[in-house]
Write a protein that binds this DNA or RNA. Sequence first.
DNA 1: GGCGATTTTTAGATTCGCCTAAATTGTCTT
DNA 2: AAGACAATTTAGGCGAATCTAAAAATCGCC
Lengths: 221, 221
Amino acid sequence: MIDLSFAEENYLKAIYHLSSAGQNQVNTNAIAERLETKPASVSDMIRKLSEKGVISYVKYQGVNITEDGKKKALWVIRKHRLWEVFLVEKLNFHWDEVHDIAEQLEHIRSSLLISRLDEFLGYPKFDPHGDPIPDAEGIISSKPRMILSGLNVKSKVKLVSLKDTGNAFLNYLDRIGMKIGSRIRILDIIEFDGSVEIEIDNRKRLTISKRVADNLLVVAD
Amino acid sequence: MIDLSFAEENYLKAIYHLSSAGQNQVNTNAIAERLETKPASVSDMIRKLSEKGVISYVKYQGVNITEDGKKKALWVIRKHRLWEVFLVEKLNFHWDEVHDIAEQLEHIRSSLLISRLDEFLGYPKFDPHGDPIPDAEGIISSKPRMILSGLNVKSKVKLVSLKDTGNAFLNYLDRIGMKIGSRIRILDIIEFDGSVEIEIDNRKRLTISKRVADNLLVVAD
DNA sequence: GGCGATTTTTAGATTCGCCTAAATTGTCTT
DNA sequence: AAGACAATTTAGGCGAATCTAAAAATCGCC
Ligand SMILES: [Mn+2]
Ligand SMILES: [Mn+2]
Ligand SMILES: [Mn+2]
Ligand SMILES: [Mn+2]
């Protein structure tokens, strides 16, 4: 029951994200790319993680995360997202500045610290990017999220998360006055290029490109 | 100008504390004992730190911290103490619970984070144990501290820090209602065993042993 | 001033996390 | 079914941080 190292936690988190964002089977190369490391290093680490029982794998066949692995990954994700809330809500960081710091803070070991932080923040359910915060048992309870570009005209939704969280995209959203929590109504969908005419918060009307709509995650409102 | 590793930061901090709490010359064995490691490991690390210019040393002659090393050590100490304030003031930790968590948090790399935290905490000058918090330039501005047992009858002082921060001592102080910031007036000093009759916060009178008085650091009030 | 005890350094090994280069396995195409 | 090509693993090596055991230097005492 020894703690995972920082590196092991990062690998496990990457594997968790890859396996919940796609098929179950996670490839060596995908992990390497996500962690900006080399496939050979991933092979090494995969062996160690499977010896520790947090993933299972068959050589050349890719990786599956185990229940125990999922629990451990969700614990790191919980810490990451709570710290992001802290940075934005309490220390006035902008949502595009917090990720790198949270990448460090997520490895701090103290469950008491995290439960106190959770309490201090008022038990938030979502991080500043709209991603749900797992509870202490690793359970994520939140409405199913949809991609804006997949919806029909007249849908009324609320922005909860972003697929792209790069600065260019975040700056664009700032500029058009869209933020996590904004209400969006779909007025029309242009057949030609898939761009979407929307109304934000019952005030502002504008057209966004399909590319933008592809990166907005929303829930029914 | 590459960052020091966690291990290097811990060594440097230990060397800083040892050199400011005693003679300038810091011994290999003293460092090993403080960090609960072996002298052989210390010798190795000393070589690396001196190559990086944060300490200077001559083989077999002990170590001196350089100006650059002092600056870097004080930066880690600043972070440690600010996080301790955060844990006690905002997350309701008790002062005897915060050290181990701060040992982890002190290595988080972000000067913006620390300046925001400092602001959020209201620019505290002392940590929960009464130790002064260096400013962003590494300057410690605080009154000279004295040991209570070294003072004369009728002195009026304020408790700012503890030499012993073990649980037994902290519990005792709680029990007699003494805390950082308490005003202490010395009513009498018993010649026989050096115990001290005091008045706390103009209310409570009691006698403390010399052993206790030895561990109370105070400033003139 | 010399010698035993203590302190410090060196030598050699281990674990972790990473790398490059080479070998191996799997997949796809014809 | 056989290459060609891609994905993955293995082999071998490196730097960081640690350890034990042994050698070397310094200190302290007579
Ligand atoms: Mn993040
Ligand atoms: Mn986030
Ligand atoms: Mn501390
Ligand atoms: Mn402290």
